[in-house]
Write a protein that binds this DNA or RNA. Structure first.
Lengths: 187, 187
DNA sequence: AACTATTCTTGATAAATATCAAGAATTTCA
DNA sequence: TGAAATTCTTGATATTTATCAAGAATAGTT
């Protein structure tokens, strides 16, 4: 199995191997250079990508500053889900934090998958429910933890990010100032 | 159209009226008294309810205290989504904050809907994506707003809660202490 | 209505976190 | 490689929010 087959099988639980191969064949490998934009707020997000290597930052502008919603690395899917599914204007801007390799499916091809794979909508739903649960958990961390606890929790689960991504973005994503993150790291 | 038909049509966009009527027929009206539990953490959540009247609080125990994740009122659906879809043990406890009327569908009947309504999984997926987007927005409020801004934002959008629900739960849901919420209200 | 529970408010104080400013370290790029 | 730009750290200080404690207000119960 290729890497992408492996990930899609484990995320979506595609049972039949020939279906899996068909799905994967829709994804095209491309690269994006550090600093380039995958998506800008207001545009339509017509693609869903799987990160083979590199990092992408999902963020939006608030009144005062940029707010980093998430940083996605190897093995993550990236898209503006609402824009991708409903053809809304995107709420997020997505930018490469490093040269990255992406397997990308267009929304056009994505729609075809439903006609090819039996139970696709069921599997897709289940995948989105898992995403929903993760985001819900993240709210819980904001309701029940201090900044320092969030830092530790995140650090334990995402060590790889800390050497490869500017810390200011991690701070924003954790809901604290860069100075505060810096001080917590010292300990 | 009944109230429930109206809500389900607007949330899920069911096109065919006879399908809508069939779906709604699975929902049974029942009542739950103030203080009673709709669901307890660790149990299986085998039902999805629509609130006709009243309020339910969704919460979980953290190390220190109870953390209120959300308070649902009239017009909301309540369930532990992950438990309902995957038959996991529930992560949330759900308790009535007032005598409430619920339209409830069992997970058993819920599964039948997929066989009755064409495009059900598609519609269901779209509904869950909307829920995902709402939760994502909520994270954004924690990353970009102060406690006071979150209070104002929430108050503007949920005025009805403030007279009918203990404020300590609203405070918890907004990620602040009850005293802080009290002080903000004074202004 | 009177008693009890619970919830809410308020003040005093402590703790957590943000802001500002400057210098150090690192990265970028010509 | 070296200069410029960006990012990170650190200290001093301000602001926000939490905690503790007590009394006031409200809701629940007999």
């Amino acid at each position: 199995m290729t890497e992408l087959e492996h990930y899609i099988a484990s995320y979506l639980g595609i049972g039949k191997f020939d279906e899996l191969v068909q799905i994967v064949s829709f994804f095209k490998l491309s690269t994006i250079k550090k600093g380039e934009y995958f998506l800008k707020t207001g545009k339509n997000c017509d693609k869903l990508s799987f990160i083979k290597s590199g990092f992408l930052r999902i963020f939006a502008a608030s009144e005062k500053e940029e707010v980093t919603q998430w940083i996605a690395g190897k093995g993550y899917f990236v898209t503006d889900l609402s824009s991708f599914i409903f053809d809304n204007p995107a709420r997020w801007t997505i930018q490469a934090l490093a040269d990255s390799e992406l397997y990308t499916i267009s929304s056009e091809d994505y729609k075809k998958v439903g006609t090819i794979v039996s139970k696709w909508h069921e599997l897709e739903k289940q995948f989105i429910v898992r995403c929903f649960t993760l985001v819900e958990d993240r709210i819980f961390t904001h309701l029940s933890m201090t900044a320092e606890e969030r830092y530790h929790y995140f650090f334990e689960h995402n060590k790889e990010l800390f050497n490869q991504v500017p810390l200011q973005y991690i701070a924003s994503m954790l809901g604290m100032s860069p100075e505060t993150l810096s001080r917590m790291r010292r300990k």
